[in-house]
Amino acid sequence: MSKQDPRIYTNLSALLELRQDSRHLSLSPRYRPAGMLSGRHASRIKGRGLNFEELRQYQAGDNIRQIDSRVSARLGKPYVRVYSEETDRPVHIIVDQRLPMFFGSQVNTKSVTAAHLAALLAWQVFDGGDRVGGAVIGCRDMVQMPPKRSSNNVIQLLEAIVTANNQLDLASLKNSKQSTTTRSLLSQVRPLIATLNSQSVMILITDIEGVEIEELAELEVLSQKSNVLLFVIQDPLEDDLTAAHGLSVSYGELQINIQANAHNQLKYDELYQQRLASLKKATLTSALPVGLVNTYEPVITQLSRLLMGEPR
């Protein structure tokens, strides 16, 4: 299996080139995920935060909502609290590059699609003036970096994605750490979650195997304090196993012929389709923005549709 095939493995040059495409995207403070499965509540990215600067006597033209009633009552004169706006937001992009992502039936593997999605978001966030960081969870380990207002930090994040992506193969299953392969994505970044504040943004990029249904409630609670977005990567063959009937899957000398009979379809539906249906149902009653991204359409087209509500 050649690592030169961009449909199977990504490279740094490809992720760097996505910066130009990212300039057509928007994650503004007034952002509403018009095309995402955002449920019945209006979801939005919370605005940048305010830093307290000083307490001073009220002046004509001041916002009366900023009057500090306790201080004013104690001093007998109206006093206001003065704030200055923060100039950027810390954005954490969490990217799944574990073995379940190493699958694709048409154009790209899910792992390559996730890498492209992460790169587009990272560049858009950085060019928008915010700090970029995050974590890359691979089949061998997890690499984490704090958000910084630095292009070098973006490049380091992309390099970590490429490294984890290029380590994906069946041999990695033997060398993979139990903690990275069997645990959900969310469970591995809980120490990071503990550091989030009201201005933080956390973007999770994984597939249906990377998030437990019961964790959606936890993410929804978290989204009340911080900005949380979940992207789920899907391959069309995962939606309909019958389309794989008669196909041969090979890796080197290993080859398996897929027989998609009714019995196998039923078992598969229990494992995947019901899980996907539960995920979609949960998002319909949640304020959590969830976007489904497939492996065959250009990622920039899908992301524009999800973030900006462009028509299909």
Rank of each mutant, 00 (worst) to 15 (best):
Q255K: 14
P289Y: 00
I161G: 08
Q199N: 13
D207E: 12
S150M: 02
V228H: 01
G47W: 02
L186F: 15
A243I: 06
F102A: 09
Y296A: 05
A160E: 07
T109D: 04
A42W: 06
L237Y: 15
H263M: 09
P311T: 11
P29R: 04
D269N: 14
G76C: 05
L121N: 03
I256K: 14
K110M: 09
Y83I: 01
R149D: 10
T10Q: 06
N264T: 08
K267S: 10
I8M: 09
L121M: 14
N63P: 00
G291F: 03
E214Y: 04
A217D: 08
S2H: 10
K148T: 01
L37H: 10
S150L: 04
V80N: 03
L230E: 10
L241E: 05
E214N: 15
V228T: 06
N257C: 02
M101Q: 12
V249M: 12
D96T: 08
L170V: 11
L12M: 08
S248V: 14
L292I: 07
S105D: 11
S22W: 03
A217H: 07
F52M: 01
R70F: 09
T206L: 05
N51P: 04
N63A: 13
L204N: 05
T285A: 08
E238A: 00
V299M: 01
R275S: 11
F231M: 10
G35H: 09
D240C: 10
Q234W: 12
D5T: 01
F103I: 07
L173G: 11
Y83P: 00
A164C: 14
L303Q: 06
K280A: 09
L168N: 08
T181C: 06
K46G: 10
A164N: 11
V107P: 05
A287Q: 15
S2G: 12
K174T: 14
I205W: 06
R48Q: 12
P298H: 05
G133H: 01
Q66W: 03
L271I: 13
T206Y: 04
V91H: 04
D21V: 00
